Simulated scan of single mutants.
Amino acid sequence: MITVPLVLLMLGIAFLMIKFGKQKPVPMVFGVLVGVVLASTPAGPPIADGIEWFCQEALKAAQAGLNEVGKKVA
């Protein structure tokens, strides 16, 4: 489900990338609009679930790596 805060967050990130990241505005705005449209289709929830799963697995791997480093130091 697309919410106003999510759209504002996406636009805020796009603004920062344009201002400080030397990105051109037209592709960034187009990307935000395509993302909003895609998220509001039936394909949106599986994509969001996949991204969430990937982020959780990446965090687990990072935490496991940090735990290993902590064991070697101690």
Rank of each mutant, 00 (worst) to 15 (best):
M1P: 07
K24C: 02
L66C: 04
V26Q: 09
S40Y: 05
V4I: 11
G65C: 02
V32A: 05
P46N: 03
F30D: 03
G44S: 07
K22S: 14
V69W: 13
L11H: 03
V34Q: 04
N67F: 15
I51H: 05
P27E: 06
G35D: 02
V29K: 04
M10H: 00
L9P: 00
A61E: 14
L9W: 04
G70W: 08
F20W: 09
L38W: 06
P42W: 09
L6P: 00
V26C: 01
K24V: 01
L59H: 09
A64Y: 14
T3G: 13
L8G: 00
C55V: 15
G12W: 06
G44H: 08
V32Q: 11
A39Y: 08
G44I: 05
V69P: 00
G31W: 05
G70M: 12
V36R: 01
G50F: 04
V4G: 02
M1W: 06
F54A: 13
K60A: 14
L66W: 13
L8P: 00
K22T: 00
L6D: 08
M10I: 01
F20P: 00
V32K: 05
F20V: 05
P46E: 05
M1Y: 02
P25W: 11
V32C: 01
C55R: 07
G65F: 11
T3V: 07
P42I: 07
I18V: 15
W53G: 00
V37A: 13
L9M: 04
G35L: 07
V32M: 05
K24P: 01
A14E: 04
G12T: 09
K22V: 02
M17P: 00
F15R: 10
P5H: 07
M10D: 09
E52D: 10
A48C: 03
I47H: 04
P42G: 10
G31V: 03
S40C: 08
M1F: 09
I51L: 15
F20L: 13
C55L: 12
E52T: 10
M28N: 08
A58F: 10
G70N: 14
P25Q: 07
I47N: 02
V73H: 08
P42N: 03
E57W: 10
V4L: 14
Q63D: 13
P5L: 07
G70E: 14
A62Q: 11
A48G: 13
M1R: 03
L38D: 01
G21D: 06
C55M: 07
V73P: 01
C55K: 12
E68N: 09
G12S: 11
F15H: 10
